[in-house]
Simulated scan of single mutants.
Amino acid sequence: MEIKNFTGRQLEKSVPASPEDGFIRSQVIYYEGSFEQVFQLVYPEYFNRNFSTVTPFEKEPVISSDPYNYDFKEVAALALLLTNPEYKQQRRLYVPDWDQFASLFEQVQWDTVENVIKELLEYTP
């Protein structure tokens, strides 16, 4: 797996003032062989506010590598995919349950995630 890009963003509500939940989409674009693949992790926005309970990080940005700073939503899908490569079989994972969401990050080696990001930055023109 060769990682091309990773991002995260808040999705727009259909009606800005509606009481519906907001959602986060964390995404990784990578190459598997010669094919470009996309993996998306989608979860309710309020999970993002509690990331410190499932990571060793207290505040954002969670990973900094001069001159870049990455928030949890930007690295969540990358961390999940690095820890659980079996998710490469899925294109999209929607997680509406907090307990399920928290369990996804129990085995993440955050040092590994940070090292992968730093390696990507070294080779990015």
Rank of each mutant, 00 (worst) to 15 (best):
P56F: 04
V54D: 05
Q89G: 06
F35S: 07
A76N: 02
R49M: 12
E32D: 14
S65Y: 13
Q40I: 00
E45A: 15
A79I: 05
F51D: 03
V28A: 08
F47A: 05
P85S: 15
T55Y: 08
Y70A: 10
F23I: 01
I63F: 12
N84V: 04
N69L: 13
E45S: 14
N48R: 11
V62H: 07
P85M: 14
K73D: 01
L81R: 01
K88A: 15
D71P: 00
R92P: 00
D71Q: 10
E74I: 05
E36D: 00
S64G: 00
F23A: 02
F23V: 02
I24W: 02
R25I: 11
P67T: 04
Y68I: 03
I63G: 06
S34A: 13
L82E: 10
Y31D: 00
Q89E: 15
V28Y: 03
T55W: 09
Q40F: 00
S26F: 11
L82W: 02
K88T: 12
Q89C: 03
F35D: 06
I63H: 05
Y46R: 11
P67R: 03
K88F: 09
Y68S: 08
D21F: 06
E36R: 10
A17W: 14
Y30N: 02
Q27E: 15
S52W: 10
F39D: 05
A76M: 06
F35Y: 06
E86P: 01
E60N: 14
P61K: 09
S14F: 07
Y87S: 00
R49E: 13
